[in-house]
Design a protein around this nucleic acid. Structure first.
Lengths: 202, 202
DNA sequence: CATGAAACCTAGGAGCCCTAGGAAGCCGGA
DNA sequence: TCCGGCTTCCTAGGGCTCCTAGGTTTCATG
């Protein structure tokens, strides 16, 4: 019987495709083995276990995502860069729902430095914000705000969270504009004082 | 042998507690049966299947969440209401990670009208935004922006997405302030035109 | 052609979801 | 008090999953 010619990369790529088709949660060693016409035990030569497979898919997807974002942002600045970043981000999430879901798993922090994708993500994101003239810690706060909104929007959209009869693309564009406004009028110290005296718990 | 005295409500409540302790994904019929000292087949008297159990946990958590938010928002308006809403939202997500994760599952749209929690969520959210003077479709856009940011932030925080050495609570406070700024300077039509001529894809 | 390193296999254990049908507790009314 | 009858909980079992141990086959290389 001829061999399937499996490698770790081929297995991971097939897992990513399967995730996009049927959902990241339903990516299973058995289903993957069926796809290759192979017994499931055979896959454990190329992948340590299911967790390892998922992490590999996550790193693959994270790299693809930041590559597309970096391409879209290249040569742009300020609002221009922000809308390009946002567009590329959501486009990837819609085009590759399973891969995108993979990027959200909790990954062992010890192997984060091994991944160039995560470092590049930080570089591109902070670079995009340079035009807004923020300094630490506001810069980190702004990055967290953007990541949260982008991810939250895509996650809610993916799970059917936006039921209202309003075009989702139009809402997205408005949200990006609103974020741009927030970045331009970023709350500084004197503004923060007023809120601190208000209703915040601590 | 005395009976365990199970009911659907008790099973769902135990599932929610188990979710908070060990994660929503690891809530299993078998584990739940062990918790009650009962065979797993016995639970199928009270719950149709695992999917049904998860939906019930989601509806329970959604109700609890909106109740706490409504209590926090009551009697407040504008920025005051926004910070109260945000604080109650994140506090629930941190205190009940498993229940909160449950609220994010995709639920059959046909049984949404049965759930008063979802209607109340819409009422409270739209009511909170009244002070900002927005009208449709900006109102829906703003609701989507807030939900996205709140959910995205809590989701990223839960999966360890915020690695930078910056206090997460402080970042959250800044994000809420930034959202308030965005709502006060909400981009209107004349502003939108400038962006439309810019880099947006379509 | 031999040999060593892989890729791939069979066999099997354990956990999970779920169904079908039987036994046991608990309630009402006679 | 006793006796149906309803409900709860059980045993039994099938199917799918992850994963390990150890054997066999394929393939490249000397």
């Amino acid at each position: 019987m001829p061999r399937a010619g499996l490698t770790t990369d081929r297995v991971v790529a097939a897992a990513a495709d399967l995730a996009d088709e049927t959902g990241f949660e339903s990516v299973t060693v058995s289903a993957l083995a069926r796809h290759f016409g192979v017994k499931d035990a055979s896959l454990y030569t190329h992948v340590r276990n299911l967790q390892d497979l998922r992490v590999r898919v996550a790193l693959l997807a994270g790299g693809e995502l930041i590559d597309e974002i970096a391409t879209a942002v290249a040569g742009r600045a300020g609002k221009d860069a922000l809308t390009a970043f946002a567009g590329a981000y959501r486009a990837y999430a819609l085009r590759h729902p399973g891969r995108y879901a993979a990027t959200q798993i909790r990954v062992d922090p010890s192997l984060i430095p091994d991944s160039p994708a995560l470092r590049r993500t930080a570089e591109v994101t902070y670079g995009m914000l340079r035009a807004y003239g923020l300094t630490e810690p506001d810069l980190t706060d702004a990055v967290r705000l953007l990541r949260s909104t982008f991810h939250g929007y895509c996650a809610l959209e993916a799970t059917g969270g936006f039921a209202a009869p309003r075009d989702v693309q139009a809402s997205w564009d408005k949200a990006v504009e609103a974020l741009h406004v927030a970045l331009e009028h970023w709350p500084r110290e004197q503004d923060a004082r007023a809120v601190a005296d208000g209703t915040r718990g601590r």
